[in-house]
């Protein structure tokens, strides 16, 4: 039986690898140190595979087709972005478990879009680079939910898809120790006039809800309010909500938080633990 041993929330900000010297050293060190804390934890937990929940930014898919939930079940490589500051590579996936998550979902009300040849954008590639690759022999299962491109997924649906992933993992016959990463956020306004603004008050409110395990309040936040207070990038809290669905009842613990306008985002790192 597979087991979800731990969960983490972290930024996937592309400026972290592409403009590493932009912020003050103390902030950069805090953020990179937080990624190392995550790798230390998954190493200690002897994790075999990580489900990484990200969202497209009109990089992988265009307006021609916008899947609400997509899972990589075949070849994986990345990044798409040549400017990301991360060398292109093939990534070891877990095709069998990814396909099982997809099949389970399809039998239980989740119409997954499947990618058999997936080139990752920064939302999965940045967490992979900092918080998976440094640990030997970890397989990656990329999941993209549409938190970024209108029409965005509802937060309720993001949670339900997370629950489906968690149930699928529990139903897997093979022995796997699985971690889940919810990635993105927290407040940021990519491409908008407010780009560079960070709303630390709002970021800490979101993190406090996660600390309490209050996913109901997170789901209840209206998209228009998230957009106003956290930016179009703030909608990526739906990736966090999805990860909380994977975990089941859970609480959070803050690993680190830095408001980094140089990286145009509030960077929050948290560990999720079963409640």
């Amino acid at each position: 039986m597979a087991e979800i041993t731990c969960g983490f929330l972290m930024p996937h900000d592309p400026l972290i690898p592409s403009m590493p010297d932009a912020p003050p050293k103390a902030k950069r060190d805090a953020c990179l140190g937080a990624y190392r804390t995550v790798t230390d934890r998954i190493r200690a937990e002897k994790v075999d595979s990580v489900v990484v929940i990200g969202d497209d930014h009109y990089t992988i898919n265009g307006p021609y087709c916008i899947p609400q939930a997509m899972i990589g079940i075949g070849d994986i490589e990345g990044p798409c972005e040549k400017w990301l500051g991360i060398q292109h590579e093939k990534i070891i996936g877990n095709e069998a478990l990814a396909r099982h998550i997809m099949d389970y979902g399809r039998e239980n009300g989740v119409d997954w879009a499947a990618s058999k040849s997936l080139k990752l954008d920064h939302s999965v590639m940045v967490p992979y680079h900092y918080a998976i690759r440094p640990v030997d022999n970890i397989r990656t299962i990329p999941v993209y939910i549409n938190s970024g491109m209108e029409p965005v997924i509802s937060s309720r649906r993001a949670y339900e898809i997370g629950q489906s992933i968690g149930q699928a993992i529990a139903a897997w016959d093979g022995a796997q120790r699985v971690a889940v990463y919810g990635t993105g956020g927290i407040s940021h306004w990519p491409g908008m006039a407010e780009m560079g603004r960070v709303n630390e008050v709002w970021d800490r409110m979101i993190m406090e809800m996660i600390v309490r395990g209050d996913v109901g309040s997170l789901i209840a936040l209206r998209d228009e309010d998230i957009l106003r207070d956290g930016g179009n990038g703030g909608l990526e809290i739906k990736n966090f909500i999805c990860a909380m669905g994977v975990m089941g009842a859970c609480r959070g613990e803050v690993i680190a938080y830095e408001a980094v306008p140089e990286w145009v985002a509030g960077c929050g790192y948290m560990e999720l633990t079963a409640a």
């Binding site: 930014h57 307006p63 491109m149 491409g191």
Partner: peptide, 8 residues
């Protein structure tokens, strides 16, 4: 139009 797409 999506601001992310515009920016890209």
């Amino acid at each position: 139009a999506s601001e992310m797409l515009l920016f890209n």
